[in-house]
Design a protein around this nucleic acid. Structure first.
Lengths: 252, 252
DNA sequence: GTTTGTGAACAGTTTCACAGCT
DNA sequence: AGCTGTGAAACTGTTCACAAAC
């Protein structure tokens, strides 16, 4: 941030992008894609920020971490910005992905178009259930778990998705890691333990609903105690999208 | 935190639970449930913290915001703690939920057991597609969008789930809000705009994958430039689960 | 002895406000 | 004029370390 490594070549330093920034870049990228479709070739920080649901200053600081330079007095070039963000995220290549667990959720994931749109290609489907193995889902065959190491190494798969029941998740995680996967997206409601170099992220619907429940509950009890205004209760949860106007932009 | 409101009755203040804490409470609750199943009635902060994948100090601070008191030298009572967390999250009641969009994803959600387990009851399924309307999914009829206001008010639904294609999401969001829903979980890859009192959370698979892609990309480029160690690149992304041992506990 | 609860130090993130460039 | 990039301030969140309680 303040530490500006000189960086070997004249390449703008992409060292040390803050975690919070990385988590927002995909959102910017999607919104930029919409502007590009709308034939717009230049965009200002406030235009993009409002569309992405963030504060303009935050957006500019985020972009500054990429070494991405807009033009003062003018704004950013939509295409150039998309290119820079894609590069920072490593999206200018194809990422083969293996999906373990081909139940309802796994099928929903396989059928999701947003996958291919960003360069994620489903390289293989794997399941432990013998009645599912051998089926074809969206044109892809479902393999047995024993095939996992071969499938992963054949395609150089580094990203795995766990869409199994909770009880199987840790075992699947271990097998993915020993097959060579180093990034995991876990949909099972279970804490996963993995070696320290492995990046594990989770999507947990029940947890999200419980957070919403908290808000509804708070709303109730506050109305009861304080019918006029809102007591100090701390801002939005977790991702911390700050609403900054009457209509708050939320989500990505 | 430092401000200790005296609070009207002798009730421990549950004012101002930090957003980051609220986001972790569901995880604690699940892990506690596992210990309860295992017949364990008392638990220490470090035991629970390790199982939940967080730092023990963080866990204790989180619990202290609930006014939840353990016993020094002993630990916490599993059942009492579950009760306190449930209460803080508003889970000691039933929450009817409406699901809009009954495609692959919607069906996966409807079939997900974790729902009912925490008191979330699917009150209604709604879809805009005439070929889906009238079908039964997991025993529940799919209603037409025009029925939304009636369904929501009949059951006092406050929580809505959007599982539609991206193009429909904002329109659905508006309709949910005008029907009386005040908390929304959005699965569509689209920024939603809603009135400031409405709580919107999102689940975005493509975004999660892109964050994993960033990590894989960074791993690649670092190995290339710095084969020995790891350069300063900032910690884990977003939720900030700090690994604090050789095996990092991740997820919830 | 053990373990909690918490002030204080630290780290990360957001926002402000303005200098600097077009 | 307009808009970006960025120090500095403000805020939020995490971790340490220890006094207090059992």
């Amino acid at each position: 941030m303040s530490e500006q490594l000189p960086d070997r070549a004249g390449v703008p330093s992409q060292r040390a992008i803050p975690a919070a920034t990385v988590a927002r870049l995909p959102g910017y990228l999607r919104v930029l894609g919409e502007f590009a479709n709308g034939q717009q070739s230049r965009i200002s920080s406030s235009q993009l920020a409002i569309a992405a649901g963030v504060n303009p200053a935050k957006l500019r600081k985020d972009l500054s971490h990429l070494g991405s330079y807009g033009v003062r007095g003018v704004g950013y070039t939509v295409e150039h910005l998309m290119d820079q963000i894609s590069r920072a995220l490593g999206l200018n290549r194809d990422w083969p992905v293996v999906v373990v667990g081909v139940g309802h959720l796994g099928r929903a994931l396989v059928g999701y178009d947003g996958f291919a749109a960003r360069g994620f290609r489903i390289a293989a489907l794997v399941d432990a259930n013998p009645t599912i193995v051998g089926q074809h889902v969206s044109g892809l065959p479902v393999h047995d778990m024993t095939q996992l190491p071969a499938l992963v190494s054949a395609d150089g798969v580094k990203i795995g998705i766990i869409a199994t029941p909770a009880v199987a998740a840790q075992e699947v995680c271990d097998q993915l890691v020993s097959a060579g996967v180093t990034s995991i997206l876990n949909f099972a409601p279970r804490v996963l333990t993995a070696a320290s170099g492995i990046e594990v992220r989770k999507v947990d619907v029940a947890m999200e609903l419980q957070i919403l429940s908290f808000h509804e509950h708070r709303r109730d009890t506050e109305h009861r105690r304080d019918p006029v205004g809102v007591l100090a209760t701390g801002g939005p949860i977790s991702d911390g999208h700050a609403g900054f106007d009457v209509r708050a932009e939320v989500g990505s």
